[in-house]
């Protein structure tokens, strides 16, 4: 009896662990599609750099490969960062505004 209970508990524990694991979200096909889209477009965007500098592009692709492999389930992270909370939205908005102003205003002085 007790063996059965502990077996059940361990199964339950495994299931709850699996639930928290971002790699096994229930919408698997959607997450996979999102993951592949993100990876492909990131790599292609890195290849776009080759119009500016070939070495920079190769360097970027290698860095991206390392970063992508080390952070592999990207889709849940992307989803978490884009939920409907006002804080995250306004954070990204302000960051974008700040980066745009800084990069363009000070960047264009050296063009």
């Amino acid at each position: 009896m007790s063996l059965y209970d502990s077996f059940l508990d361990s199964i339950k524990g495994m299931r709850s662990k699996l639930k928290n694991d971002p790699a096994t979200m229930d919408n698997v096909s959607g997450a996979l599609a999102a993951e592949i889209t993100v990876i492909v477009s990131l790599l292609l965007s890195a290849l776009l750099m080759s119009h500016v500098n070939m070495f920079a592009s190769v360097f970027l692709v290698i860095i991206l490969a390392v970063l992508l492999i080390s952070n592999m389930p990207l889709a849940p992270k992307i989803k978490r960062e884009q939920d409907d909370s006002l804080e995250k939205m306004s954070f990204y908005i302000i960051v974008t505004l700040g980066v745009l102003v800084a990069v363009i205003y000070w960047g264009l002085k050296y063009v």
Partner: peptide, 10 residues
């Protein structure tokens, strides 16, 4: 409180 009303709900 904005965090309570418009925070992460999902």
């Amino acid at each position: 409180s904005a965090r309570e009303i418009m925070g992460d709900e999902e």
